[in-house]
Design a protein around this nucleic acid. Structure first.
Length: 484
RNA sequence: CGCGGGGGAGAGCGGUCCGGUUGCUCGUCAGGCUCAUAACCUGAAGGUCAUGGGUUCGAAUCCCAUCCCCGCAACCA
């Protein structure tokens, strides 16, 4: 099989809050795909990082009495810690939108769009709450008023901002979608964005007055303005590759216009930004588009949106500390519907842990390894992903990013093995026909090897433990997942 | 007429695109096994697949209408 270059990126979390379950979901989903690609022998560029500019960060920093940069440093660190905690591939690139190189790349990008006539200045009306002394977006308002200060009338202030000619890209985007029928996965999200673009596009504001909000990347050639955070943040997907200087790396992983290569994963709230706005920006800069955008759902808790006020926030850090990284990864990949919303409760979590991990995978490995060590049976076969047809089903699902379905296939095998042990009874047969029993146990050990191999993208730590046990069947195996 | 998702055994989900004995997980009940983490295997009970109409030999699935729940509605994973 020919080696390919594979690029995948998450969205960059905005550092206005610490890592939560939704971030964990996206990191783990991306990691499963990345690990799988690595396993089948492809060269990998895996990207994530932190989105650090903008008004909200600026305010938070002031609230916490910190310099914005110091505040961001602190939060970027928190995200690095959660990546580690989730056992995300160490080779992941971690870009920060305050990185010097990102800043210069963004300014270059801006100039490309500007040269193409897609950036212009226009008076822009903003709604301003005198109570908060802040600008408010329409989505923040309740009944047209600031929810915190409903007694104040909102003031309309006019300021000059730069705008991006999004409207110009309605037709180009639609024809691009037409030519790339798999551009957004799953298909119902693709329909959603098509309908949105068909409905007409409004140019969007891409800068802010520096004197009001200095925490942004300076607009080239205009000292009075900084870029609006969205414009800057999206560019990370290519600045992380060393664009614009490192054209070789860029072509290798981002691809060219005929064969775009970048896979992006994002939450459903990011559908527009990733699959329309960002693609229009790339078209404007005359750069290749992304290859595919994968959209996942949200995690609710007790059927409701997680929020501090509802008191139902589940901390991924705590869960993995308490039950293990792979227990959390298992839940995120197998219990969650890959493309839809899922609900997290402690009860569901422990049920799935006990069922799938303790009674399922853990117990199966225990019973087979015990028989193997008692009877001196060791591993007899080895396979690999790239060449073996045994993995075809898994391959089919993962090439479509059907993470849950791929995991389901593994657990189907686990169930069949439990059944096979019961039906062939090697533990009993060993007393009457030891050779035949050993042969069966040998087959079972081979199956455990296969499971360890297939499990690696999902549960890397467990996979490693099983491999270790397979090499030393005589060593006592501690339960992989004690019941909880 | 804004967009989208959903209504199904006690609970949670597949299945719906491309009509043809409702499938899975957990729970309950009965039996079996003893290699294993009170784990594992077999079987059973339990559903008018939201409602009303239509198409069809046949509808959870297609069409029309209605009711209810939940997100989003330009920058919140």
């Amino acid at each position: 099989m020919q080696k390919k270059n594979f690029y995948i990126t998450t969205t960059l979390p905005y550092v206005n809050s610490k890592p939560h379950m939704g971030h964990a979901l996206e990191f783990v989903q991306a990691d499963v795909i990345a690990r799988y690609q690595k396993l089948i022998g492809n060269d990998l560029f895996f990207n994530t990082g932190t989105d650090e500019h903008g008004q909200k960060i600026y305010e938070k920093a002031i609230d916490e009495n910190k310099e914005p940069q110091a505040y961001c440093d602190e939060y970027a660190e928190k995200f690095k810690v959660i990546l580690d905690k989730l056992n995300i591939l160490k080779e992941i690139h971690f870009i920060r939108t305050t990185d010097i190189h990102h800043i210069s790349a963004t300014q270059t990008f801006w100039k490309l769009c500007e040269d193409n006539g897609d950036i212009y200045k226009k008076a822009y009306k903003i709604k301003y709450c005198v109570g908060c002394e802040l600008e408010k977006t329409d989505s923040e308002l309740v009944d047209g008023r600031c929810p915190i200060h409903p007694s104040f009338e909102l003031r309309e202030i006019e300021e000059e901002n730069y705008f991006f000619k999004f409207s110009k890209y309605q037709e180009p985007l639609l024809s691009f979608y037409e030519k790339n029928p798999e551009f957004v996965v799953p298909d119902f999200r693709f329909n959603e964005i098509k309908r949105f673009v068909e409905g007409g596009l409004m140019d969007f504001s891409i800068s802010r007055l520096k004197e009001k909000m200095p925490w942004g990347i300076p607009v080239p050639g205009d000292e009075t303005q900084v870029m609006y955070v969205w414009f800057d943040a999206l560019i990370n997907y290519i600045s992380t590759l060393g664009w614009p200087e490192d054209t070789e790396n860029f072509l290798r992983f981002w691809g060219n216009k005929d064969t775009p290569n970048a896979i992006q994963i994002a939450g459903k709230d990011n559908l527009r930004q990733q699959s329309a706005m960002w693609q229009a920006m790339l078209l404007s800069a005359k750069l290749p588009t992304s290859k595919q955008v994968i959209i996942h759902g949200f995690i609710t808790s007790e059927g409701q949106k997680m929020s501090k006020s509802a008191g139902n926030v589940v901390d991924p850090f705590e869960i993995s500390e308490k039950f293990g990284t792979d227990a959390l990864r298992y839940w995120l990949t197998r219990e969650m519907n890959t493309f839809e919303d899922g609900d997290f409760t402690m009860e569901k979590f422990t049920d799935s842990y006990n069922g799938g991990l303790a009674n399922g995978l853990g117990n199966l490995v225990s019973r087979i390894m015990k028989m193997a060590s008692t009877n001196g049976v060791s591993i007899t076969r080895e396979m690999d992903f790239a060449n073996d047809n045994e993995f075809e089903i898994l391959r089919d699902h993962l090439s479509k990013y059907e993470i849950k379905r791929a995991a389901d296939e593994i657990w189907k095998i686990i169930g069949e093995l439990d059944k096979k042990i019961q039906e062939t009874e090697p533990f009993r047969l060993v007393k009457t026909e030891p050779e035949k029993a050993k042969q069966i146990i040998g087959e079972l050990v081979g199956e455990v090897w296969k499971i360890a191999y297939m499990t690696e993208p999902f549960l890397p730590e467990t996979s490693e433990k099983i491999f270790r046990a397979l090499k030393n069947p005589s060593e006592a195996l501690t339960p992989l997942f004690p019941r909880i």
